[in-house]
Computed example of a mutant assay.
Amino acid sequence: MDLNTVTEVVSPAGPGQWRPGDAWLGGGTALFAEPRPHLSRLLDLTTAGWPALTMRADGLEIAATCTIAELAASGHDIVERCCHAFLASFKIWNVATVGGNLCAALPAGPMIALGAALDGKCLILGPEGERREVAVSEFVTGEATTVLRDGELLRSVHLPKLPLLSPTAYRQASLHAHGRSGVLVIGRRAGDGLAITVTAATRRPYVLRFPEMPEPEVVQIAVTERIPEEAYVRDVHGLPAWRRHLTRLYAEEVRRELAG
């Protein structure tokens, strides 16, 4: 979709250049998906020169401008599975960015699921260059809403080494073979315990943590008590009752898989 109110593209762009009426531009697949009449300038991050992926001693740093195709080639099974949850063409894979998927904050955003499930941390830069870190599980606060303040930008996501290398179990469902995710549940062994992350079914991520491997009824109680009924999404991609049912079913399936 044309953004016919935009009169200027600043490239390359970075902290300190933002003003009211601006938007940060990554891949643009979400930005150009709907009218945005309040915008007058785009600040291009794709020419900032950030390395897409940096393997460090403490884990993997993913630039906000890293494309889905680049991330999928990183060699980690759970990462590739989340990338495939896009159910998008190779054209989208080579344009859409990790940061854009997070900042769009759509319930079905698989990069939200990946980051939350692996205890990812978002590095946020302020207009004057100030830095702060926010857990991916807390970065998205609702449908299309995040913790970002005016002028802030998402610089990168850090996935810690231990969660990245931990055993995981993955379950995803859509109403149609090539439809948007209606439910996405990821289980991860966390020491002697278990972490279960629920996205797509809910307006924001929910991470259920258990210090020891839980019994089935403990997981079901946690899903019921920690995820409010009003948190489940209602749209053309699935009704809340269906999403809630599959969330409970998949939570038990990933528990059983990782307990075995």
Rank of each mutant, 00 (worst) to 15 (best):
K161G: 02
A200R: 01
S181W: 02
L208C: 00
E225D: 12
R204L: 12
I196K: 04
R209Q: 00
V136R: 13
G151R: 07
G129K: 11
R171E: 06
R209L: 04
A177E: 05
E130T: 04
S174L: 07
L123R: 14
T199E: 07
P216G: 14
S181L: 02
G129L: 01
A177L: 15
V134M: 14
R188M: 14
T202F: 00
R180P: 08
V207Q: 12
I227Y: 01
E128G: 07
P214H: 14
E229H: 10
D150K: 15
P228L: 10
L154A: 12
T197S: 05
F139R: 09
Y232C: 01
H176G: 11
A190R: 08
G179Y: 04
A190Y: 06
G187Q: 03
F139D: 14
L123D: 00
G191E: 09
P211K: 08
A190I: 05
P163C: 07
Y170E: 02
P216W: 13
T197L: 04
V140A: 08
G126Q: 02
R209V: 03
T141F: 13
A117Q: 09
T197D: 06
P214A: 08
V183C: 06
E215F: 14
S156I: 12
A190D: 15
R149F: 12
T146L: 09
L154P: 03
P127M: 11
G120Q: 03
H158M: 14
T197M: 04
L175A: 10
L162P: 00
E138V: 02
T199F: 03
E152F: 07
L194I: 10
E217M: 00
L154S: 07
V207E: 08
V185Q: 03
C122K: 02
S174A: 13
S137T: 10
L162Y: 09
P205W: 06
P205Y: 05
I196A: 07
V198K: 00
L118M: 03
M213V: 08
H158Y: 04
S156C: 14
D150H: 12
S156P: 06
T141D: 13
R155N: 11
K121C: 10
S166P: 01
P127E: 13
A117W: 01
A177Y: 13
Q220S: 11
E212G: 09
I227R: 01
L148I: 15
L164H: 09
E229G: 00
R132M: 08
A144F: 06
D192A: 14
R226L: 15
E143S: 03
L154Y: 11
R171A: 11
I124Q: 12
V219W: 05
T224W: 12
T145F: 05
E217S: 15
S174F: 11
V147C: 14
L159A: 08
E212R: 15
L123I: 15
Y232V: 00
R209E: 09
R189G: 09
L162T: 13
L184M: 01
L154H: 06
Y170R: 01
R209M: 09
G191W: 02
T145D: 09
G126P: 05
A135V: 00
Y232L: 06
I227L: 03
K121G: 08
T146N: 05
P167R: 12
D119K: 07
G182I: 04
G182Y: 04
A117K: 02
E215R: 15
V140Y: 09
R155Q: 15
Q172R: 14
F210H: 09
P214K: 15
S137E: 15
A177S: 15
A201G: 01
S156V: 08
L159P: 04
